[in-house]
C-alpha cells in the first residue's frame, strides 16, 4: 500500500498539477463523500488517476464552545484503550489557558479521520492504515517500526498521531474500534462521547466539511442547560 501511495503522490501532482490537499479542499465534504463513499479497500487509483482510500464510517465532531475542560473525554479514552487514565495516551486532546477569555481559552484537538490521510501515506510499513471494515484510520501495532513519520506527517498541530512510549508504537483515534478495557461497549459507542459531561462531542457518519470549522460545530443543547444560570453561549 505504501508503494501505491508514493507512486500516486507523484501521479496526482504531476498529472493534475494539484496536490491532494488542494484537491480535498476544493471538493469539500460533500464531494469527498460522493467520491469516496462505499469504498472498502484501503487505497485505489481511480480512473482519473486520483488516489483515494476508503472513507471512514465515522467522524468525531466537537463543540469547543460547550466543552467544560473537565478532560473526562481524555481520561475515558486512555482508560478504555489502555486500562489507565493518562492524558498523554488520550487520542483526543483538550488544551486550555485558564486565564484567557472565552472562547479562546480552550481548544479541542481530535483526529479528523482525514479523507486523504497523510499519516497513512507516510507510513512505510502499512502499519498506519484504513481499517477494511470501518474505514477508520488506525495503527497495526505489530507493523509499526517506530519511525514516527506518521506523527510528523499529520498536518495538524498538535499531531493527531501520537507516540505511545509504553507499548512503543504510534497510535491515534480509532473511534473506539479497539478498546480492550471496555467490556460492555456497544457498537458505535465512543468512550469520549460517553464520558463527556456537556455533550460537547458527537459521532457522525457524514463527512464534515474539510474547510474552516467543519469538525467544530454547534451541537445544540447549550441554551437550555446554560441559561438556567444566565450563561449565554453563541
Amino acid at each position: 500500500m505504501s508503494e501505491l501511495i508514493d507512486e500516486n503522490k507523484e501521479q496526482v501532482t504531476e498529472n493534475n498539477g494539484m496536490s491532494r490537499r488542494q484537491f480535498m479542499t476544493g471538493v469539500g465534504g460533500v464531494g469527498v463523500g460522493v467520491v469516496l463513499g462505499g469504498m472498502v479497500t484501503t487505497g485505489v487509483l481511480g480512473k482519473d488517476d486520483i488516489y483515494a482510500i476508503a472513507a471512514s464510517d465515522g467522524y468525531l465532531l466537537v463543540d469547543s464552545k460547550k466543552c467544560s475542560g473537565c478532560m473526562s473525554c481524555m481520561l475515558a479514552c486512555s482508560l478504555m484503550h489502555h486500562g489507565q487514565t493518562n492524558l498523554s495516551l488520550s487520542r483526543i486532546q483538550i488544551v486550555q489557558d485558564s486565564t484567557e477569555a472565552y472562547p479562546n481559552d480552550l481548544h479541542i484537538y481530535q483526529c479528523h479521520q482525514c479523507p486523504f490521510p497523510s499519516c497513512v501515506e507516510a507510513c512505510p510499513t502499512g502499519a498506519m492504515h484504513a481499517d477494511p471494515k470501518t474505514g477508520v484510520r488506525t495503527v497495526d501495532d505489530e507493523k509499526c517500526i517506530g519511525c514516527e513519520r506518521c506523527i510528523n506527517a499529520c498536518p495538524y498541530t498538535p499531531s493527531r498521531v501520537q507516540w505511545n512510549p509504553i507499548d512503543k508504537h504510534a497510535q491515534k483515534c480509532d473511534l473506539c474500534t479497539n478498546t480492550p478495557n471496555w467490556n460492555n461497549k456497544e457498537e458505535g459507542m465512543l468512550a469520549c462521547v460517553e464520558a463527556c459531561s456537556t455533550r460537547a462531542l458527537e459521532l457522525t457518519k457524514e463527512i464534515p466539511m474539510q474547510t474552516g470549522l467543519g469538525y467544530d460545530v454547534d451541537l445544540g443543547h447549550t441554551s437550555v442547560a446554560w441559561q438556567t444560570f444566565g450563561i449565554i453561549s453563541e
Partner: peptide, 24 residues
C-alpha cells in the same frame, strides 16, 4: 444545573461552564 458560577456574573456575560478534571 451546571455553570452555577454564573450567578456571580453581570447580566449578559458570555462564558463557558468549567469543571475540574473528571467532573460532571
Amino acid at each position: 444545573s451546571q455553570g452555577v458560577a454564573a450567578v456571580g456574573y453581570p447580566e449578559g456575560m458570555k462564558a463557558r461552564v468549567h469543571g475540574c478534571s473528571g467532573c460532571i
